[in-house]
Nucleic acid binder design. Structure first.
Length: 598
DNA sequence: CTAGGGTTAG
């Protein structure tokens, strides 16, 4: 390009008198490129241009360069910062903010301390930055110290600081402290409410989040788009479709309908509440869509078992010129593994780094393990985990273990189980899977040995819990318990359902019931009162014929409940939408959308 | 430059 403009001989600088160089105007600095800088290389090029433009000693430009530093290039940011003779509070904040977004957020605590040492006083933005860093590092001790410093310096009741304090404590798992801070605040503002509502969502207490929203409405404060985001997350957690629809309506009426983030949260809410059609509706109506919106829709298709649609949407996204990120790939890989597209999935995984510039992380490796193992390539999956460039988490071995369970490979399952125990022996579910595998194989000695081991190590099973929304209320059922007011009726109905299904060929599958010392009858009873069966029975009693039943379960659905639900959908002529720990099952006319592959 | 959407596995 530039060659066309430099016709004639290049004049070497040395042939000009020095004066001429001094008077020559330096080239203008391309300020607009600052915010587009994504790599260390680009940043260094910009720095070089700054030197050419003789702006390299201007603090504002250096601050902008530091701000533009990608999180992985904080060493360079530090190098730039160290060239500034007397950094002011803005520069300290800038550096601190950089660290808080990097892999090493706790460094921003050090920057803060250095600022105080240098005799520079903090401003309104210093504490929020510091507290955010503590939150993202989950460093509660540092967070408490920062809180102490804020109190001492008179920033604790600052409108910018207080909400960040609340969210910092919540992020560090100290919900009680967050609540106490929120409670003793007078003159609560909507941001504090948002902060507290989000804190509840993050700690998986969606019910409390909704209660706070009602309180917020009662105070007469105006909710914001951020409030909507947290409320929608609550609905997604609860699987509360009716409430979600109400919020959608509220969003429309109150002018939040054009916010990209709100629409993304709506897509996620509809998908996780079982209504793929509504999710598609929101997506299609959106004017501009960013990476996150596309990712949400890809994940939505994936968890509903439409792997092919998820992949074609991904290709469409690329054609539109939207750059995928790490989470987009999680969705794509997830879609591939849940629809048996092994080669496609491996292809996308291999293209991540080179073609798309996304560095695979542990979660992507987890997807690949799932991809291989689910498809029965168990040995390859084992080799893959063993050859990883990083220490595998127990989750990776757990993925392999459960796939071994599905494919009946007891020997490899035992090897995977051993590897899990080396890393984490407190997870009851692992013992249950391997013990069931041994039981199906008739290895009763192993079963007893594993059960003993489980109680020795103090590992506990998470109790199964299913909920169903009827008349805007979410009803919860635990396996075998009688806590729900209508539990008696639900148990009776469960009995009735089983009897009616026997005539259409249902045979209870007790082979995987964990308690080996139970008699056959006892086993049947324990199976019959699985939480999802109780929830379905409750739904059959309390909704008019033909209503779709929407059930949310906290664990994976068991094989027996899965085949029972298929039969219910036929014998009782009901659609059932069951949300698993990680995907949806749509039961209709005797079959399931997952194609029995989950 | 307060609060904040999409995140594998079990």
């Amino acid at each position: 390009m530039s060659a066309t403009f430099t016709a004639g001989p290049l004049s070497p600088a040395k042939s000009r008198p020095n004066e001429a160089i001094a008077k020559e105007t330096p080239p203008p600095f391309p300020f607009s490129l600052l915010s587009k800088c994504t790599s260390l290389r680009q940043l260094q090029q910009l720095h070089a241009l700054a030197i050419k433009s003789r702006l390299q000693h201007q603090p504002p430009l250096l601050a902008k360069l530091i701000t533009s530093c990608p999180p992985s290039a904080m060493d360079y940011a530090r190098h730039l910062f160290d060239q500034i003779p007397d950094p002011d509070v803005v520069l300290f904040n800038t550096l601190s903010r950089g660290y808080s977004r990097s892999d090493d957020p706790i460094q921003s605590v050090a920057v803060f301390a250095r600022m105080l040492d240098a005799g520079v006083g903090p401003d309104d933005y210093s504490f929020p930055t510091l507290l955010k860093a503590c939150a993202s590092a989950k460093a509660s001790e540092e967070g408490r110290q920062a809180h102490g410093a804020a109190v001492k310096l008179g920033f604790a009741d600052n409108i910018y600081v207080l909400p960040t304090l609340i969210s910092m404590y919540a992020e560090c798992g100290e919900l009680k402290v967050a609540r106490a801070l929120f409670a003793r605040t007078d003159g609560r503002c909507v941001v504090s409410y948002n902060s507290m509502i989000t804190a509840c969502v993050r700690s998986s207490r969606p019910g409390e989040a909704l209660a706070l929203f009602r309180e917020l409405q009662a105070t007469g404060l105006e909710p914001t788009d951020v409030t909507m985001l947290s409320l929608l997350s609550s609905c997604a957690l609860l699987g509360a479709l009716e409430l979600g629809k109400w919020i959608h309506e509220y969003v429309r009426k109150n002018g939040f309908g054009s916010f990209v983030k709100v629409n993304t949260a709506l897509i996620d809410m509809y998908a996780k509440c079982g209504s793929l059609e509504d999710a598609i509706g929101v997506f299609d109506e959106m004017g501009s869509k960013d990476t996150q919106a596309w990712s949400a829709m890809i994940v939505a298709y994936a968890i509903h078992g439409h792997g092919g649609k998820a992949i074609s949407l991904f290709e469409e996204m690329l054609k539109e010129g939207i750059k995928p990120d790490g989470i987009t790939f999680l969705g794509v890989l997830y879609a591939c593994s849940h629809s048996g597209k092994v080669e496609e999935g491996l292809g996308y995984f291999r293209g991540m780094r080179g073609r798309h510039g996304v560095i695979p992380g542990i979660k992507h490796y987890g997807c690949v393990v799932d991809l291989l193992a689910r498809a029965g390539r168990l040995g390859e999956a084992y080799e893959f985990i063993d050859g990883l460039p990083m220490q595998p988490t127990p989750i990776l071995w757990r993925t392999l273990l459960s796939a071994c369970g599905g494919h009946g490979d007891v020997d490899l399952g035992k090897r995977a189980f051993e590897r899990i125990l080396e890393l984490d022996d407190t997870h009851g579910g692992d013992y249950v899977i391997i013990s069931n595998m041994c039981a199906s194989d008739g290895r009763w000695e192993d079963v007893n040995r594993i059960r003993r081991l489980m109680s020795e190590r103090g590992a506990v099973k998470v109790p199964g819990c299913s909920s169903i929304e009827v008349d805007n209320t979410v009803h919860e059922f635990f396996s075998g318990d009688g806590k729900h007011p209508q539990s008696e009726a639900a148990h009776r109905m469960a009995d009735e359902v089983v009897e009616r299904l026997r005539s259409v060929g249902y045979v209870p599958d007790t082979s995987r019931v964990f308690h080996v010392d139970m008699g056959e009858e006892e086993k049947e009873a324990s199976l019959r009162y699985h939480s999802e069966k109780l929830a379905i029975a409750f739904g059959l009693i309390n909704t008019p014929p033909g209503t779709t039943l929407r059930v949310v379960k906290n664990l994976r659905v068991c094989g027996d409940c899965h085949s029972m639900a298929k039969l219910v959908s036929m014998a009782f002529d009901r659609e059932i939408v069951l949300r698993d720990l990680n995907r949806f099952h749509h039961f209709k006319d005797g079959s399931c959308s997952c194609g029995d592959f989950w």
